[in-house]
Simulated assay, not measured.
Amino acid sequence: MDMQSVGDAFIRPGQVLTDRSALSAASRWTQAVSEADGVCVIHLSPGADPCEVTAELREEGMQASPNHVFRGQPLFFGGPASRPFPCPPIPYKPGRTRSDVVIGLLDTGVAKHPWWSRSDWYERLGPDDADATEGAQAGHGTFIAGLLARLAPGAALRVDRVLDGDGFTDEATVVRALHRMRDQPPDVLNLSFGGHTFDDRPPPLLSDAVAALSGTVTVACAGNTASDRPFWPAALACAVGVAALDDSQERRAPYSGHGTWVDACARGEWLASSYLECGEFEGFATWSGTSFATALVAGAIAGAAGDEPPKEVVARLLDAEGARQIPDLGVVVPASL
């Protein structure tokens, strides 16, 4: 994916994300516009800086943002747990009980797997929602789907592939996918990707798109940044931001993002789940990262949402009297797999 660095944030060069109301105001910088699912991407004229254009449009009261680049957050920058490792088959037999709970999964897609090969939700997936087979994050979505399936048995997944095989996407792609969910919003939404913004402010169109799913509990990863810099969309007020604990579930995993904007935490190291059948992998792997801590929290919420509305579940989870909390990591969510 073509991108440029602005500080520790990444953006698509020469692109500004906005809605139709800003097109006239942006015309003096515009070379072309691409529009889909209620989102406009302005392709700027040569020499126009996306961050400067964004600042000017915001001063005029417009919704605008550089088209930020986001990436999935398995641990990938080094260390003994920085990639998936093959593991023996995990004993798990999907139950026959069906739940009315729907979990949205925006990720690399989901591959065929024995755990859900006969599930109604998997049979409805199109070829564009199949997991990537090549790239550093191929299998990321399938791994997360397995964690969700075990914690919320009987729940249906609504899959939309927004990440490529290396785990990259951009803000426009994510906002468009969120807009497509508005007619039939999921109960719980798992977003195991994100990134910084050029100015550390919430990206307005992404924020509005998440907030518009008012009945949905959106759960997003705090990132593998080892810093307290806000990581989006996890830092949005309308999202549950999730950090990773080490395998003792007593301390922050050293790579995990943290800060006052984090709401919850769960184990993120050496988790085992479903994976691709390729090379040395026979459909199962162990992997680490805030991506997977997020799936544990989303799965715990979805698993309890069969008995009460998901918004009530998350309120009880985050405000429970006597719940263990860790400063800058939020409420500890234990998850048994």
Rank of each mutant, 00 (worst) to 15 (best):
V6A: 06
R12H: 07
P13I: 09
Q15I: 03
D19N: 15
S21I: 04
A22S: 15
Q31E: 10
A32E: 12
D37W: 01
V39T: 07
C40A: 09
V41F: 05
V41K: 03
H43I: 04
S45T: 12
S45H: 10
P46E: 13
P50D: 13
E52N: 08
T54A: 04
T54N: 02
A55R: 13
E56M: 06
E59L: 10
N67L: 15
H68A: 00
V69Q: 01
F70R: 01
F70K: 01
R71Y: 01
G72R: 00
F77C: 09
G78E: 02
P80T: 03
P80H: 14
P86G: 13
R96H: 08
V102D: 07
I103E: 12
G104E: 09
G104A: 10
T108R: 01
G109S: 04
A111K: 03
H113V: 06
W116M: 06
R118C: 14
S119G: 10
D120S: 13
D120L: 08
Y122E: 14
A138M: 02
A138P: 12
G141I: 01
G146R: 00
P153H: 12
P153E: 10
R158G: 05
R161A: 13
R161N: 11
D164S: 02
E171G: 02
A172C: 10
T173R: 11
A177D: 08
M181N: 14
R182D: 04
R182T: 06
R182S: 14
Q184F: 06
N190H: 09
F193M: 05
D200E: 15
P202E: 02
L206A: 00
L206D: 01
L206S: 00
A209K: 11
V210Q: 02
A212H: 15
L213H: 05
V219F: 06
V219Q: 02
G223K: 00
G223E: 00
D228V: 05
F231W: 08
F231M: 00
W232V: 00
A237V: 00
G241S: 11
L245D: 06
Q249R: 03
R251P: 07
R252T: 09
G257E: 01
H258E: 14
A266C: 07
R267N: 11
E269L: 10
L271C: 14
E280D: 13
E282I: 07
A285I: 08
T294L: 13
V297F: 12
A298D: 15
G303L: 06
A304L: 15
E308F: 04
K311V: 04
E312S: 10
R316G: 15
L318M: 11
A323M: 03
R324I: 13
L329N: 08
S336N: 15
L337V: 11
